[in-house]
Computed example of a mutant assay.
Amino acid sequence: MTWDIEKLDLDAYLARIGHDGARAPSAATLRAVHRAHVTSIPFENLDVVLGRGVPIDLESLQDKLVRRRRGGYCHEHNLLFAAALERLGFRVTRHLARIRLGGRFHLARTHATLTVEPEEGGRWLADVGFGGEGLVEPLPFRDGATARLGEWAWRLGRDGDFWELRAGDTALYAFREEEPQYPSDFEVANHYVATSPRSPFTRHVLAQRTTPDARIRIEDVMREDAGAVATAPGLVAVLRDRFGIELPERDAAELLPRLATAP
């Protein structure tokens, strides 16, 4: 596996996220494209739950997330986003981080995240694929950097030789910036996330849509109106209208028995 960024249809990607603004590799463009991606392409693991695996070569990523208007999880989102940024002229470094689940745990390096350098200098943490309480806009890559959007707040800081991202008081993940990552590293991490019975992605149905002021999750929909997702046509409609996920009815029918395991 290589990054193969030349295979990206950049115009189609930018249309998918609704970005028709500047394309210069500036910090302003990075913020705009990052926010557009997070609020346009949902976070979801439906193919994992359906037992189909998750290929992360660039052609598969743009077919799923761009052409078929699906969502994905961290490896899908951030590898697609990295290719788009590089095509725009940014310098991008791909990292694998350790999820912390609110504590200082040394879990396996399974989360994909990015650092990005715009044309005017400086460096940013960019992550469009965390889901949960992840970033909406990038953070300056420096100790103590903070950002706030409405009630959401993030902080990036040092924890020994790790960089740690926090949302409010909760540690999300940590990584070492100097540790080089190669396509093969992402293949291994992605395989674990998509197939291991210990992975939360194989045990629960996850879907989330982020707007500038809200996070809509499938478990919230189930609590509010379980009847809306009680049939395959109903689930198709909810995924389309609430999450922006286009799913065939036959796939929705396969997912119905697994919805009871949504956290």
Rank of each mutant, 00 (worst) to 15 (best):
M1I: 11
Q62G: 06
G168K: 07
Q62K: 09
D11R: 11
W152D: 12
P183T: 07
L88A: 08
G72L: 02
E178D: 15
C74L: 08
R209D: 00
T261P: 01
H204T: 13
T195V: 00
I5Y: 07
L14E: 01
G129F: 07
V188E: 13
V188A: 13
D251K: 00
A108R: 14
G144V: 09
A260V: 15
V229D: 06
G227I: 12
F141C: 10
E120I: 14
R215K: 12
A27R: 14
E219C: 09
V38S: 10
Y173I: 05
E119R: 15
V38F: 07
A147L: 10
A83Q: 11
D11H: 11
V92W: 11
H95E: 04
L247P: 03
D57M: 06
E137N: 03
A230F: 08
I245R: 02
R217A: 12
M1K: 11
L58P: 13
D57K: 08
R16G: 01
I56F: 08
T113W: 03
G160C: 06
A167L: 06
L96D: 07
H191Y: 13
R258S: 12
R217V: 10
A24Q: 14
L61T: 03
F243H: 06
E224N: 10
S196H: 05
A83T: 12
R16E: 07
H95T: 05
G122M: 08
D225A: 15
R242S: 08
E179H: 10
L65D: 13
Y173T: 03
A262L: 02
